[in-house]
């Protein structure tokens, strides 16, 4: 045996961090980055609220269904409010993938390869941060709705909010990640933002699908926004779940997740 080393000698006995490096400090900083980014805040929080105020608020007294608002029926404003809340959640969710694309192009992903952090855990942390900001967007839009006179039952508030947030978050996180891994750099963010605006229009987020021309209605039913938004708004209208909505939502989610897994594998092989 050699003599004992000095107290501050570099030790070679090390532990590996648990959970692949998952931790709340990283999550906190990820959230802070989003809240500091003016563009992110404008597109995920302010833009949906503004659209709600412009399109929704004038229709606070317009009934959505045959049930008059005085008798507890929902207003068109409530429909727009839920739609806009989902729009914010979608925007926030897709930015996860865009951020992955940008950070890969900037070499940050490579820097992280010099730490114990598991690449999958890195994506999961970003996903959670994106979902949390999405929740913030939903709550902010709902607050605007409540302030402007939208009245819903507790079940309707929670039902539309939770399902809208989770469904938009899941499908569009997957879409964003797929694009983020396929398209390098800043372009990913532009492409997904444009895609969402387009899909939101066609999929009936800005006005009810039932008011569209027939051929547009047929197209709308196949877009990824349609299924999830119809499901999320079901508590408003009291409609029972249509199997087609569920097929649409699950189908798009499966497609985007499969695409993400494929692109992620291809990406990590390259480092």
């Amino acid at each position: 045996m050699t003599t004992a080393p000095p107290a501050d000698r570099v030790t070679l006995d090390r532990r590996v961090p648990p959970f692949g490096g998952f931790n709340l400090t990283y999550l906190r900083i990820e959230l802070l980055r989003k809240l500091r980014n003016r563009r992110t805040l404008i597109f995920t929080i302010i833009f949906p609220i503004a659209l709600y105020v412009i399109i929704g608020v004038p229709q606070v007294d317009t009934p959505l269904t045959a049930t008059p608002i005085a008798q507890g029926g929902p207003s068109v404003a409530a429909y727009i409010m839920v739609s806009m809340a989902m729009y914010g959640a979608m925007m926030s969710a897709t930015q996860t993938g865009a951020a992955v694309g940008v950070e890969r192009a900037q070499g940050w992903s490579r820097q992280l390869r010099l730490t114990p952090l598991n690449p999958l855990v890195n994506v999961i942390i970003k996903m959670i941060a994106g979902l949390l900001l999405g929740l913030f967007a939903v709550l902010a839009t709902f607050a605007a709705g409540a302030l402007s006179g939208v009245q819903l039952s507790a079940v309707q508030w929670i039902g539309t909010g939770l399902s809208g947030w989770i469904l938009a978050g899941a499908v569009f996180t997957a879409l964003g990640l797929m694009v983020g891994y396929l398209v390098p750099g800043e372009n990913a963010a532009q492409i997904t933002s444009l895609a969402i605006v387009l899909l939101a229009f066609i999929g009936g987020l800005f006005y009810p699908v039932s008011t569209m021309p027939d051929f547009m209605q047929s197209i709308a039913a196949f877009t990824p926004v349609y299924g999830i938004s119809q499901i999320a708004r079901a508590p408003l209208t009291g409609d029972t779940l249509d199997l087609l909505w569920v097929v649409n939502a699950v189908g798009w989610l499966a497609l985007f997740v499969a695409g993400t897994v494929w692109a992620f594998r291809r990406d990590t092989q390259r480092v």
Binding site: I29, R33, N37, Q106, G107, W108, S109, R110, Q111, L114
Partner: peptide, 10 residues
């Protein structure tokens, strides 16, 4: 490393 990236916004 020469190529190691940094996050510019933090």
């Amino acid at each position: 490393l020469q190529t190691g990236g940094l996050l510019k916004d933090i």
